[in-house]
Each structure stands twice: as C-alpha cells, then as structure tokens.
Design a binder for these strands. Sequence first.
DNA 1: TATGAAAGGTTGAACCC
DNA 2: GGGTTCAACCTTTCATA
Lengths: 157, 157
Amino acid sequence: MTLQGIDELDRQILFALQRDGRETSSRDIAERMDVSPSTVRKRIDRLEDQGVITGYRAEVDFDRAGYQLQVQISCSAPVPEREALADAALEVDGVVSVREIASGEENVQVRVVATDNDDLTRIAGELSELGLSVSGELLIRRETFTPWAGFDERSEE
Amino acid sequence: MTLQGIDELDRQILFALQRDGRETSSRDIAERMDVSPSTVRKRIDRLEDQGVITGYRAEVDFDRAGYQLQVQISCSAPVPEREALADAALEVDGVVSVREIASGEENVQVRVVATDNDDLTRIAGELSELGLSVSGELLIRRETFTPWAGFDERSEE
DNA sequence: TATGAAAGGTTGAACCC
DNA sequence: GGGTTCAACCTTTCATA
C-alpha cells in the first residue's frame, strides 16, 4: 500500500489511538466505524508495519514525578550528519525527544530531563562530544499533546 | 502520596509504559519486579490519578501518513497569559503539541501538521487571533521520542 | 481484504492480609 | 499498601468467503 493509501478507517484508527493508545480496544473503534474488530486489528497491524504508527508512549508529567529540570537544548549539526546525530542524541541518558529542523542554524532541538545542574552539564557535554554544537538552553515549563484533528474529518479522500 | 513518593516500582512502571504503553501488560511488569499483577495495576491507577501519567498516545509518523507539512510555529505570549494561551492553542485544528518555555521572548512553541500552505496560513491566523504573537515558522523534518533513562536506574531513592 | 469462532491472556472488582 | 480469586473482556490464530 502506498503513502497515500490511508482511508477513512485508517484515519479514525489513528485519531482514536492518538487520543488513548492504551484503553482503546479494536472493538471500540470497530463499533463506531461499523466494521468487525478483527478488521480494525488488521488495519492497526498494517499501520504499524508501514511505520505510520511508530509506537505507543505513556505521557509523563515529569514535574509531578519530581523532576523539575526539563530543558530544551538547541544544537547545530552539519546537514549531512543531522539525521545520524539526532539518532545518537536520542541515546544519551536524560534525553527524551529530538526534533530535527529542515533549515536554519539551530537545526536539532533536544529535550532533556535532568536530575540536577550537574546532570544537565553532563548531558550537554555528551551532546557536544557526539559532534553537536550546543548553542542554548531553555527551561521548559510544560509540554502538552493532542491528536491531530485532520484525522477526524469526515470528508476529503 | 506526595510528589517525591515515587519509588523503584513506580519508576519501572513509568519506564515500561513510556517504551510501550499499549502492549505492556501489568503482568509483564509484575514479573520483572517480582510483585503481583494487581499491585502493578493499582500503582498504574494511582500514577494516573496523581497526574504523573497524563495519557497514552500512539506516535504517528505524519510523513508516512501522507502529510509532509510539519511545522514549528514560534510565538510570544505575555507571561501571565502564557498558560491559558497555550491551552487555547492546543484546541486549534492542526495543532499537535504546545511547549511552554519559562523565559525569553519566544515562550510558546506550537507544533502543527498542515494539509497545505493555505491550511498553514489559517492555523497561524487562528493563533494570532487568540492573542499569540507569531514570530517564525520552521519546517520540522522529524521528531523522535525515547523513555527517560532516569526511570530505569536501579539505585538512588 | 473482511469476517467469525475458539483458545489463551488481561483486566477490574470484591475481599483478605 | 500488597495479594488472591473469578467473571468479563480483549486479542490471537485459524478457517472461510
């Protein structure tokens, strides 16, 4: 199935699983879409195999878990190495996400959770050692997520 | 239970659910930690009630789903209104995440997925109407996530 | 590709320590 | 707070069209 081969059922599945990927059963989605649970199950398997669904993650409020030092570290990477450096950064202890930006100087944004200032220094140091040029650190207050509304539109095919 | 009342079992639960929040059963975690499945279930319930776990989301590769226009919109909000504006931004169709930054001029970063350039213009317009000052747009190539390694350390309490 | 049925695993609730 | 039991639910696998 090609890239554009995502139909209404697939979109509804993606929307439902973005909203609650743990408690939403195949049956829940099947009932709303008037198909059988096993049809939904197979679609989910296919979306996972295709790499459209890349995982299911519990969203953690680090603040409430007792870790207040959530920081965005802006980095620069030579464009040919950006992807590999982003993958490497994701392996550094303390890193929770990496965003690659297509253009501009600061083209890799690393989100980290540190236990204290020494830990933050260690993380920035490890990123530098990988070959990323660290240009700034910003304290993150909060990050919130929501399902993409485009998956829930009962229209364009 | 207070903020610091997160013990080793809680941390292992958070780590496991960050890695795979859908296929990881209470029993899987229970076996590794040598406790009963119901103990794990009760802990998960408590973490959810406390707001430490705020949700379970399927991670979608929008590129593979057929939507290449993933953009980070940098905004500025007056500090007293930042939190409310961030909440409002999350409700705009097309927005998938909002990151609040503690300091600096560009203190709200909105990640959006747009179907085309007109759609992107609409989203930026709606953010402006809310009262956010839009200062820049960057094309996101990719964003990847990983569980926080700090939850998997068998040491400090 | 969608469906249905049987087998096995998972969960939630009530109860006990 | 942790553990046990059991009924209800969910998923997996296989057969079928």
